[in-house]
Amino acid sequence: MEQLVCIVCPRGCTMTLNDTPDGLSVTGNACPRGKAFAIAETTQPMRTLCTTAATAFPAAPVLPVRVRGEIPKDRIFDVMAAINAVTVDFPAARGDVILENVCGLGVDVIATSSLLSEEGERP
């Protein structure tokens, strides 16, 4: 028996996991996403990653970015290193790809702000 807190939504359900002959039994989750999370945690834990990338624009030296999909938890620092090696030198808009297929994980790194493309056209 093992306790696990679901991090999928802010509710943060505390779940109880049990190995049964029919596979993993999960209780305490308020919705099915909790069970999917519990299964992933016990096989291949996945996480999103949000960080910043350096830019070539002095007015906005860093641009917020994130991975478009989840990445394995144990590759977080590899992906950080790859992002920290990039300098964004074009006026990226929100959703633009900053780094394709990061570390060969099949996931792109995208801009999460239109900060650079909007410099100069403020309200």
């Binding site: 807190v5 679901c6 991090i7 939504c9 802010p10 943060g12 505390t14 996480r47 938890k73």
Partner: peptide
């Protein structure tokens, strides 16, 4: 803080 943040920010 929120329980989920204890997990994804500290425990991880």
């Amino acid at each position: 803080g929120l329980t989920r943040n204890l997990h994804q920010c500290l425990h991880d």
